[in-house]
């Protein structure tokens, strides 16, 4: 057994220092398109590139609705007048009017927090990014976040996926079984708007109609740091993206 101890010690500390210090390692986030200034002709043709109606002409150019964006890169690669693209990962916004100011949610969540993850029908990428939160790089235990398999112990419900008809009942049962107060974090374009799956005979087009979502994390999939930011927002330990007037501010809540 000692070989494992030695190996473990030799590996050293891998964990990110986020949220105390910004994480800048390459490949931790795909970034996202941001509002871009363009002439109205160019804006029109750019909008047509988006397969999920995430782009909208604005007075100054093109706006992007991050709830829809599926990271297809068409608006940057398939055109000569691409959208501006920005790195970072603090994308989470508070979706419900209960917390529009991005202020603290209250003292109930100030200590360790148990999180129930429900995959309501995604492609597996969001779920895999959630799993990464437990790897040594992100090591969310250090922040007092723990995944729990049982709704009875859960403070936060973290939902990924477009909500298939088959997952409605299990999701409802999980939510109802959680004690109050509780928070719902929806992560990924599919959970927010249905993503590429949209609304169909099998998909509800997101979980918002079905559950009171408190925090929305855009991305397809959102990288682990974005999900971590969403969790920190949900427990009042980080302000929302909107409060910096960064991408995905409250201005676009409710669009789409």
């Amino acid at each position: 057994m000692s070989q494992w101890v030695i190996r473990g010690l030799r590996t050293g500390v891998k964990s990110t220092r986020y949220p105390r210090v910004e994480e800048t390692a390459a490949g931790t986030s795909p970034g996202l398109p941001v509002s871009t200034a363009l002439s109205s002709d160019l804006a029109q043709s750019l909008v047509a590139h988006c397969p999920v109606d995430a782009l909208h002409p604005s007075i100054t150019g093109v706006d992007v609705s991050l709830r829809q964006c599926i990271h297809c890169f068409r608006c940057v690669r398939a055109t000569n007048n691409p959208m501006d693209w920005k790195g970072g990962y603090e994308w989470a916004t508070a979706a419900s009017d209960r917390n529009e100011k991005g202020t603290r949610f209250g003292p109930a969540f100030s200590r360790s927090v148990h999180i129930l993850v429900v995959d309501a029908g995604d492609c597996g990428a969001c779920l895999n990014e959630v799993k990464q939160l437990n790897n040594p790089y992100y090591n969310m235990h250090r922040l007092g976040f723990f995944l729990t398999p049982t709704p009875r112990h859960a403070d936060v419900l973290l939902v990924v996926g477009a909500l298939t008809d088959h997952m409605r009942l299990p999701l409802r049962k999980a939510y109802d079984a959680m004690p109050t107060p509780k928070r719902v974090v929806a992560a990924g374009a599919c959970a927010l708007s249905g993503g590429i799956f949209g609304q169909s005979f099998m998909c509800a087009g997101g979980v918002g109609e079905f559950l009171p979502v408190d925090v929305e994390v855009p991305g397809n999939p959102p990288p682990p740091l974005a999900i971590l930011h969403g969790l920190l927002v949900a427990v009042g330990r980080k302000p929302t993206a909107g409060s910096h007037h960064g991408p995905g501010g409250p201005a676009e809540n409710g669009s789409g």
């Binding site: 490949g27 690669r77 790897n135």
Partner: peptide, 21 residues
């Protein structure tokens, strides 16, 4: 750790950790 390393290699080379797009 190795899985995350590979995700980061994919992400920094192609822009997307899961090679979408």
């Amino acid at each position: 750790i190795l899985e995350e390393d590979l995700l980061r290699i994919s992400g920094s080379l192609t822009g997307h950790r899961y090679l979408f797009g």
